[in-house]
Computed example of a mutant assay.
Amino acid sequence: MTQTALITGASAGIGAEFARQLAASGHDLILTARRLDRLQAVANELSSQHGIRVHCIAADLAVPADVERLLADVLQLGWPVDLFVQNAGYGLPGRFHSEPMATHRQFIEVMMTSPLALIHGLLPGMRARGRGRIINIASLAGFMPGSDGHTLYGACKAFWVKVSESLSQENRSHGVRVLALCPGFTYSEFHDSNGSRPLVSKMPKWLWMQAKDVVREGLKAIEQDRIVYINGWHNRLIKAVVTTMPDRLARAFSARQSRRFRITKD
């Protein structure tokens, strides 16, 4: 039986790579992002290559009405969603006080509130069918001490680790698996969109992963019923070292490293 995957932030980066790998395995796709032209380009490529159905829905997750419309459109489409990849997101450079609170509210809407609303809307169908998969794209940043700049990013990613753990416990007896996928530095448009590309390009090459490897590992991890998965041996080593350090030393280490790739504005 053909399965359907819904992917947010599917027009580029990790989201587009999820679309490619799931299309290659025969999934029908529902793709959403703000840029319909980019989504349609991905859809045309994958439907012609793999003979699958692809439906595109333009939506801005910063707008609650768009999220409600997205859920309504998915239900009206009538393709039961077997896999939800919660991927859309961005980084907000600078220190907390340097941006208006409205900007932070928008960030929280995209990174936390809207994805929760989508999961809340999709879970009943998954539980009723006795099968479902939810992959929340968290980050290695969710395990690191807070840094100077990008104030809310690590906090949001830590949130998704904890939420995924709870959702897994609540839904596994109904056949629904939930994974927090935690990549580190990954080649994508992420750092171009927030202006940090010149800084992060100075990071050692061994710290970086390709999106295709992040996605491949994530799809394997959820089928293995993993709840939290950190991509890459180097990222797992970093997490192990930092979480076993005394807190004061870990914060000092994080502060020193974050100055190399965090944008700060007074």
Rank of each mutant, 00 (worst) to 15 (best):
121 G>Y: 07
108 I>D: 00
223 E>S: 10
192 D>Q: 15
224 Q>Y: 04
121 G>V: 01
150 H>E: 13
196 S>H: 12
133 R>V: 09
191 H>W: 14
150 H>I: 14
231 N>V: 15
217 E>W: 07
112 M>F: 13
170 E>G: 01
93 P>R: 15
220 K>I: 09
224 Q>P: 05
230 I>P: 07
117 A>L: 02
130 G>N: 05
180 A>S: 13
216 R>S: 05
199 L>Y: 04
112 M>Y: 13
94 G>M: 08
95 R>P: 02
212 K>H: 01
179 L>N: 08
116 L>N: 03
110 V>K: 14
163 V>I: 14
95 R>Y: 00
232 G>M: 14
102 A>M: 11
216 R>I: 01
149 G>M: 10
103 T>W: 04
143 F>S: 09
145 P>L: 11
227 I>F: 12
141 A>R: 09
104 H>I: 11
201 S>K: 12
111 M>R: 08
152 L>K: 05
215 V>Y: 00
168 S>M: 10
131 R>W: 08
140 L>Y: 11
159 F>V: 07
155 A>W: 09
228 V>D: 07
235 N>T: 11
115 P>W: 09
181 L>M: 11
99 E>V: 09
147 S>E: 13
217 E>A: 06
138 A>D: 02
197 R>C: 10
153 Y>G: 08
231 N>Y: 07
123 L>Q: 02
156 C>K: 08
112 M>G: 01
127 R>H: 04
136 N>D: 08
153 Y>P: 14
143 F>L: 12
175 G>L: 11
187 Y>W: 12
213 D>W: 01
132 G>E: 02
214 V>G: 01
104 H>T: 06
165 E>T: 06
155 A>F: 10
174 H>M: 06
184 G>E: 11
94 G>Q: 06
136 N>T: 09
186 T>V: 15
128 A>K: 06
140 L>H: 13
102 A>K: 12
